[in-house]
Amino acid sequence: MEEKVTIQKMPVSSPEAQQLMGELSAKLTELTGCSGASGFDFRDMENPRALFAVAQLEGRPVGCGALREVSDNTAEVKRVYACQSGHGIGSRILKYLEAEARRLSYTRLILETRKANQKAVQFYLRCGYQPCENYGRYRGLEDAICFSKRLPPLSGSGKARYD
């Protein structure tokens, strides 16, 4: 029986968001020596073209991700995390973010992860992201790897599937 995962926008200040970002920061610190928290500004989520999303499984928070506006056509994917691997939660979160980005009229997504986080690097490659030149605060950081992806326009109904 397939597990029912729901994904919805949620305030970044919500207990679920705070719990998941705390777990993500701890895992990243263990893996890379950096929590990644300094690269995420909560105020960015106040922009009407930004969002924070939480994935829940049977009412339990199991993953998260965010979009931050960079320019009229580009958004940055931030804080993607799934507390259980092998359940497709990370892929569902990313598909949700991509669908929301298209709905918000973005045509390109960018993101950064650390080279040491090979699980994330391989995940983004599998999801169609291509390595690109390091941008913004990641320029000149040898341990960072940046990715980008062009988004297809929304088709007919404007609804997208992410499961």
Rank of each mutant, 00 (worst) to 15 (best):
M1E: 08
M1I: 04
E2W: 01
E3Y: 03
E3R: 13
K4Q: 13
V5Y: 01
I7F: 06
M10A: 08
S13C: 07
S14G: 03
Q19D: 10
M21Y: 10
K27T: 08
K27F: 13
L28C: 03
T29P: 14
E30Q: 15
L31H: 09
L31Q: 14
S35A: 10
G36T: 11
G39H: 11
D41M: 12
D41P: 00
F42A: 14
R43W: 01
D44M: 06
E46H: 05
P48T: 03
A50N: 09
L51I: 11
V54C: 07
Q56F: 06
Q56E: 09
L57H: 11
E58S: 09
V62E: 12
V62H: 07
G63Y: 02
C64S: 13
L67C: 04
R68V: 14
S71L: 04
N73P: 00
N73R: 11
N73Y: 08
A75D: 03
A75C: 13
V77R: 04
V80A: 03
Y81V: 07
Q84W: 07
G86D: 02
H87V: 03
H87F: 12
I89K: 03
I89D: 03
K95W: 09
L97M: 09
L97H: 10
E100M: 14
R102C: 15
S105P: 00
S105T: 15
Y106P: 05
Y106S: 08
R108A: 05
L109A: 09
K115F: 10
A116N: 08
N117V: 11
N117D: 14
K119T: 12
A120H: 06
V121M: 08
V121W: 05
F123N: 06
Y124Q: 03
L125T: 07
Q130V: 13
G136N: 07
L141S: 04
I145R: 03
F147R: 02
F147K: 08
R150L: 15
P152I: 10
G156Q: 13
K159M: 15
A160Q: 14
A160V: 07
Y162D: 03
